[in-house]
Computed example of a mutant assay.
Amino acid sequence: MSSHATDRARVIPLRPVPAEPAEPAPKEPLWRDVVGDVLRRERLAQERTLKDVADAARISMPYLSELERGRKEASSEVLAAAAHALGLALADLLVLAHGRLVQQAQQARPVRPLRSRTAPRHTEAQSRLGDVRLAA
């Protein structure tokens, strides 16, 4: 009386099976890639050669090329030398790199603004009174 059809268990998936495989999350840009891109863009905007900037920064031309291509992680001293060779302060280079990093990250995925867990919230009354707070 036993039938093969009645002996089989029916499997009910717990989660819906996606129709198509999910796309992998886009990779976030690496700091070295962003800094290298900023160095290269700035050098090209000034119509300067790798040799010219490398000589002014007192670093080797192949090393500067590696930095621009995001192949090397540079020390702060090397980044400062490269920035100064381009007429920038280290802070200028970092601000430009930060802007590019944010832009690339936003293109990869929407970014929610950061909010400190410990920062006090201002009340509606404080906002009406023009209370201004700066965060460092």
Rank of each mutant, 00 (worst) to 15 (best):
H4V: 01
D7W: 02
D7S: 09
R8P: 07
R8K: 14
A9W: 11
A9L: 12
I12K: 11
I12R: 12
P16M: 04
P18K: 08
E20P: 01
E20K: 13
A22V: 13
P24C: 02
A25F: 03
A25G: 01
A25Y: 04
P26A: 08
K27H: 11
P29R: 06
W31C: 06
R32W: 15
R32Y: 14
R32L: 14
D33G: 10
V34A: 12
G36S: 12
D37P: 08
L39P: 07
R40I: 07
R41T: 13
R41G: 15
R43Y: 00
A45Q: 03
Q46T: 02
Q46G: 02
R48L: 07
R48Q: 11
L50S: 00
L50V: 03
D52C: 05
A56Y: 00
A57M: 04
R58S: 12
S60P: 06
M61P: 06
Y63L: 04
S65M: 02
S65C: 04
L67Q: 11
G70Q: 06
K72Q: 13
K72D: 11
E73G: 03
S75C: 09
S76D: 06
E77T: 08
L79M: 09
A80Q: 10
A82G: 03
A83M: 09
H84P: 05
A85P: 11
G87C: 03
G87V: 02
G87K: 09
L88E: 04
L88G: 04
A89L: 01
A91R: 07
L93M: 04
L96C: 08
L96V: 06
A97S: 12
G99Q: 06
G99C: 04
R100T: 02
R100L: 05
V102F: 00
Q104Y: 06
Q106L: 15
V111C: 06
R112A: 14
R112K: 15
P113S: 12
L114M: 13
R115S: 08
R117K: 13
T118Q: 14
T118N: 14
A119D: 01
A119R: 04
P120E: 01
P120W: 14
A125P: 02
S127M: 08
R128E: 11
R128Y: 15
L129C: 10
D131F: 15
D131H: 13
V132M: 13
R133T: 14
A136T: 09
